[in-house]
Simulated assay, not measured.
Amino acid sequence: MKNNIIMNACIVPKYGTEEDIIIREILKPIPREKELLIKVHYAPVTPTDLTSKKGDSFIFRLFSSLIRPKFGVYGEMYVGEVTEVGELVKDFNIGDLVYGTNGMKLGTYAEYVRVKDTTVIRKVPKGVEPINTLALLDGGITALPFLRDKGLIQKGQKVLIIGASGSVGSMGVQLAKNYGAIVTGVSGTSNQELLKDIGCDYVIDYTKTKYTESNYRYDIIFDAVGKSSFIECQNILTEKGSYLITVPDLPAMLKALFKVKQKNKKSLFAATGLRKPNLKNIDLDYLEGLLINKKITPVIEKIFDIKDMTKAQQHVRTGHKKGNIIVDLRKI
């Protein structure tokens, strides 16, 4: 079926960066028999959604080039309203408020996004502010498998979280506390009170204290922003401690790829974003329960209008955001 209906979308022209972002009309997608059309209300701005530019790491530039989306519409996650459903879609109806991720197909920085019913798509739980579900996607389903599956976190363990004020780090702090860990958060001067508010037992201002030279020893070190290395952190790990990193260097990637067995102190990485939808849904069941019961609190620093996407992406690129940065697409 031909489609002549247009919609507005946030576009990064070919070979462009965030400075070149424009709002442009493109064809509105038509859902196939097992797909839904979502009217996007909000979407988070994450490092995954940034275009690469000179000065970025090789790994980031490679990843960015591999996932360049069709039509130049980035954006992986969303919360919005179902406006159309394919004839074979069973679990969703027009008018449902839903949140989810479109994976590497991206496309959520637009008025509408088309998603398959087999992707991670969930109804917003009753009593939950829809925008808060984005913190479960941009933070929760990364931090949880790292701490639980890679770190094997246990009650009473000492956990150091580097980048504790960001989207992944702030969720990591709260999840670690729910597991009964003793948590130390690392962030800059302006974020110290935030770290205390979300549950850190101890806080370190990295601009004043070199945490890698501490006499304290940690069972788990979780670098949520890729600002450290295993070599730097070995001395502050316990004898059988685990170093977890979300942004790997080449050695960490090779260890994960070839499943290298490590005795005693371990450096571990997981491509959590590439996990299958059923595993992410299991984690979201757990995270929704914590959110509903007020065991975790989403941290949202700022909501930008979609017309200010350049500013939003520039802020994320600084590496100093607090929790989540969101763009509002309701009036695109």
Rank of each mutant, 00 (worst) to 15 (best):
K2M: 08
K2C: 00
N4I: 14
N8Y: 07
A9M: 05
A9H: 05
C10A: 13
I11G: 06
I11M: 04
P13Q: 02
K14S: 14
Y15H: 12
I22W: 04
E25M: 04
E25N: 14
E25W: 01
L27I: 10
L27H: 07
K28S: 15
K28V: 12
I30H: 03
I30S: 14
P31D: 06
R32F: 06
K34E: 08
I38Y: 01
Y42C: 09
P44D: 05
V45N: 01
P47F: 03
D49C: 13
K53R: 11
G55Y: 03
S65G: 09
I67M: 05
R68N: 06
K70T: 11
V73N: 10
V73F: 01
G75K: 03
G75N: 06
E76Q: 12
M77E: 15
M77A: 11
V79Y: 04
V82K: 02
E84A: 14
L88Y: 05
D96W: 01
L97Q: 12
L97N: 10
V98K: 01
G100S: 06
T101P: 14
N102F: 00
K105N: 15
G107W: 01
G107T: 08
V115K: 00
D117S: 15
T118F: 07
T119W: 08
V120L: 09
I121S: 05
G127V: 06
P130K: 01
L137R: 02
G139V: 06
G140I: 01
T142Y: 02
P145Q: 00
D149F: 04
K150G: 13
K150T: 09
I153G: 11
G156T: 02
G156S: 07
V159T: 11
I161N: 03
I162R: 02
G172T: 06
L175H: 05
K177N: 14
K177E: 08
I182M: 07
V183L: 04
S187M: 10
G188E: 02
S190H: 12
E193A: 06
L195E: 08
V203C: 08
T209D: 08
Y211M: 06
Y211L: 04
S214V: 01
Y216M: 12
Y218Q: 02
A224Y: 06
G226T: 02
G226K: 02
G226P: 12
S228F: 02
F230I: 01
I231M: 07
E232P: 00
C233H: 00
C233Y: 01
N235Q: 14
I236H: 05
T238H: 01
E239I: 04
K240P: 00
G241K: 01
G241N: 07
G241S: 07
S242K: 15
L244P: 15
I245Y: 00
V247G: 05
P248G: 04
P251Q: 03
A252G: 09
A256Y: 12
K261M: 00
Q262A: 09
K265W: 07
L268P: 15
F269G: 09
A270I: 14
A271I: 12
T272S: 14
G273F: 08
G273V: 10
R275V: 02
R275T: 09
N281E: 14
I282L: 14
D283W: 01
D285C: 10
L287D: 11
L287H: 07
E288K: 02
L291I: 09
K295T: 09
V299S: 10
V299C: 15
K302G: 11
K302Q: 15
F304I: 06
F304W: 13
D305A: 08
M309G: 05
A312I: 10
G323W: 04
I325C: 06
D328G: 10
L329Q: 08
L329G: 13
